[in-house]
Design a protein around this nucleic acid. Structure first.
Lengths: 207, 207
DNA sequence: GTCTATAATCTGATAGAC
DNA sequence: GTCTATCAGATTATAGAC
């Protein structure tokens, strides 16, 4: 009787614990720096010995991988929110502004996450194919959303990502907690919009 | 007889060794990652026991500090080269292009250095006041140089640094060894130039 | 699934001989 | 100034009892 249910319960409990561990890992990464994360501290934070973590993850890199995955799930959610039709009643300029603000806020709200997702900073760590797939899907979703705002070629999108990661990076590195670069998000979007218009014109002239 | 000379010789020899250690530290940082640098490996690389490094540096952070300092000296040199009058016969647009290309090449040629100089990625490390002074001077020199190309307010310069560090960061993280974002440097400069023209117009209209 | 015990190694750093 | 010796502790990770 109810063998499956017990298994479900057990795996649900397990997933809870896994999630708790990953949450604690993020906490520690924020406090100690991404590469300062230590399994001893992590175990202590969730009320376990460090060794017990190996019941849930087979290596430290696997924990980083779970963090990476979770980070990109949060990224995807942010993309979805800023892309929402209702939020901007179809105005492409408003969409661009929302996307840029959302992205920079996403980054500055968690510098450790910004580091893990957008820079290769943990020695030896490489995301698993599964996590990469999620990252890529989120990236594609973002690209698709912004294509409706006029960013419809790869080069423009690459320039866009450089611009927004650059704003976030400068804010985090040189004015943590402040808004010196966050203030520049709207001007940067204006600048980028002119660029879009000009490249569109150039295409038109060629035709 | 030549007591001072002996001291000079000795301190010169010492400086040579210090420079050798820092050079080896950069090598290792490039190979193992900036935070993967270990004193044992560093000692081995220069033909010493790790403990002997303490004759030259009193802590690991002090080595990072020397790397930081050296990095900003190289940065200053790059700024000087790209700012050179001769290199662009006074054409402000050419200066902007040279500055951007020079900066991105400076970053991509050494990702570990990019990380140390422009992101806070080593847990617990903070540059000494002396090193900060050099960094700040190089920053100011860059700002001064680019002010002759029309970047004459802080906000525009901040936007500029976000743009070029962003291009470099994306190149390093997502296409190491390639040129996907490096190709976008000139288009990015064009985009930025239009921004400069527009903000200048806006200022003019206010007056 | 968590523990103890511990392996095996690496960490940065110090003391003191030469 | 470099060495040996070593500290004191951290690190990730495994084996096996409960």
């Amino acid at each position: 009787m109810s063998g499956t249910t017990n298994i479900d319960r057990r795996s649900a409990r397990r997933q809870e614990t896994v999630a708790e561990i990953v949450a604690a890992a993020w906490e520690l990464a924020r406090e100690e720096g991404l590469t300062g994360l230590a399994l001893r501290d992590l175990g202590a934070r969730v009320g376990m010995k460090a060794q017990s973590l190996y019941s849930y993850f087979s290596s430290k890199h696997e924990i980083y991988d779970a963090m990476f995955l979770e980070g990109y799930l949060a990224f995807a959610e942010m993309v979805e929110t800023t892309s929402a039709e209702e939020a901007g009643n179809g105005d492409p300029d408003a969409l661009l502004r929302r996307a840029a603000r959302g992205f920079v806020a996403f980054c500055t709200s968690d510098p450790a996450r910004y580091q893990l997702l957008f820079h290769r900073t943990v020695p030896g760590f490489e995301p698993s194919p599964e996590s990469w797939a999620v990252a890529l899907a989120a990236y594609e979703r973002s690209r698709q959303s912004l294509s409706t705002a006029g960013i419809d070629d790869q080069a423009s999108f690459d320039l866009w990502t450089a611009l927004v990661t650059g704003l976030a990076g400068q804010q985090i590195a040189n004015d943590p907690g402040g808004d010196r670069w966050e203030q520049l998000v709207d001007p940067a979007v204006d600048m980028f919009r002119v660029h879009l218009r000009e490249t569109a014109n150039a295409e038109g002239e060629k035709a």
